[in-house]
Amino acid sequence: MKLFDRQANLQAPFQKIVKALAICYTIAICLMCFLPQSIYPTLKSVETPGVQHFGRITAILTPFNTLVHFGKIPSLVDLFFIILQNVANIFLLFPLVFALCLLKPGIRQFKKVLLISFLMSLAIETTQAILDLLFDFNRVFEVDDLITNTLGGVLAYLLYKIVKNNIDSSRKLL
C-alpha cells in the first residue's frame, strides 16, 4: 500500500495514524506550555534580559529580544540556553502544522499556514499569561515566541511542499 494517493494526499490508514499522533502531540504541547514552570527541572536559573513585570504577569515584549539585549546576557552559558529556547520554540508547532498540512487540504496555502501558526502561538502565549495571572504558574508572554512558533509553522509548510513536490516528481518519472 502506498503512503500517498495520486493527488499526494495521505491514504486512509495513514491518515488515522497521523491524526492520532497529532492528538498526542497536541496533548504534549498543552503539558509543556500550560503546566506550572516550577515542575520542570532546570539546569540553572537563566535571567533573560528585557523581562517586564505587570503585576503577576511577566512578559518580554521586545521583538528579537536576544539580539536587542545581546550585550546584557551575563555569560556564554546563559546565551546558549536562550538560543536553545528560541530554537526549541521554532520546532514547537512544527510537527503539528506538518500533520495539519498532511491531513487538511484546505490549509495548504502559505497565508493560511502563517495565520494558523500565528493564532496557535498567540493562543498559547495568551493562555500562559492568563494562567500566570490566575495561578502564578511562572510563565512568560514572549513576543519572540510568537515569531519563532510562527516561523516553525512556516517551515513545516515548506517541508510539506518539498514532500509533495517530490511525490509529484516521482510520479511523473513513472
Results as ranks from 00 to 15, higher is better:
Met1Ser: 12
Met1Gln: 08
Lys2Ile: 03
Leu3Lys: 02
Leu3Ser: 00
Phe4Ala: 05
Arg6Met: 01
Ala8Trp: 03
Ala8Asp: 11
Ala20Phe: 13
Ala22Lys: 06
Ala22Tyr: 09
Ile27Asn: 11
Ile29Thr: 12
Ile29Tyr: 08
Met32Arg: 11
Cys33Ser: 07
Cys33Gln: 07
Leu35Tyr: 06
Pro36Cys: 12
Tyr40Pro: 00
Pro41Leu: 05
Lys44Asp: 02
Ser45Trp: 05
Glu47Asp: 04
Val51Trp: 01
Val51Asp: 00
Thr58Ala: 15
Thr62Gly: 08
Thr62Leu: 06
Pro63Asp: 07
Phe64Ala: 07
Asn65Thr: 10
His69Pro: 01
Leu76Asn: 11
Val77Ser: 11
Asp78Val: 01
Leu79Asn: 08
Phe81Tyr: 15
Phe81Asn: 06
Ile83Phe: 14
Leu84Ser: 13
Gln85Leu: 10
Ala88Tyr: 06
Asn89His: 10
Ile90Glu: 02
Phe94Asp: 08
Val97His: 01
Ala99Thr: 03
Cys101Trp: 05
Lys104Ser: 07
Gly106Asn: 06
Ile107Met: 09
Arg108Val: 04
Arg108Gly: 06
Arg108His: 08
Arg108Tyr: 06
Gln109Glu: 13
Leu114Asp: 01
Leu115Asp: 00
Ile116Met: 05
Phe118Thr: 00
Leu119Ala: 03
Ser121Arg: 04
Ser121Trp: 02
Ile124Cys: 04
Thr127Lys: 09
Thr127Val: 15
Gln128Val: 11
Leu131Ala: 12
Asp132Arg: 04
Leu134His: 02
Asn138Gly: 14
Asn138His: 15
Phe141Thr: 09
Phe141His: 14
Val143Ala: 02
Leu155Val: 13
Tyr160Cys: 00
Lys161Asp: 01
Lys161Gln: 07
Ile162Trp: 10
Lys164Ala: 12
Ser169His: 10
Lys172Pro: 00
Leu174Val: 15
